[in-house]
Amino acid sequence: MEQPSDEVLIAKSNEGDMAAFKKLVTRHEGKVAGVVRSMLGATPEAEDVGQEVFIRFYDALSKFRGDSQVSTYLVRIAINLSLNELKKKKRWNSRFTSMDAAAGKGTEDTMDLNEQLNYEFGRLEPEFKAVATLRLIEGYSTEETSVMLDIPLGTVLSRLARAQQKLRVALSKKLK
């Protein structure tokens, strides 16, 4: 059976059909989860942010004009909310820097390549992480990444290059 399009589901949701909205959530959960969990890691905050993304989308349904795809729109909200969450975390963590440093020390040697890659990815600056998430993890083109983050293509390319260079340097021992 053919699945209803996003536009049809949005129209139905606007008429109060909650089952239609649930279908939208189920359909786009994967993309949003991918972005949020790449940005924040598999933390409890990630799911909170994920829920917030869909609740904001629900609130904006009547204003959604369909200029962009639903997934693009959701990914944009997901990135913005994740960046806000990272800022909040940074403020909080700055009070406990010494504790964090102590906790992180000595663990890199015991990690395998995948674990360390995740760890180093988590340490990237939020702006680099946002670009790398969209392009390297989610597989969006550099043009799409530029549109979603509302930054020039050149900035996308330079942030992408810096992010990869940082990861390569940090992982150089294990990549040999």
Partner: peptide
């Protein structure tokens, strides 16, 4: 690095995520 980072399949917030959203609404 790029090969390891690229997500092979969609991620998930775990079971009943949509239900939790509907409950919250």
């Amino acid at each position: 690095i790029r090969e390891l980072l690229l997500r092979p399949e969609p991620d998930s917030f775990g079971p009943f995520f949509a239900e939790r959203i509907m409950q919250q609404l």
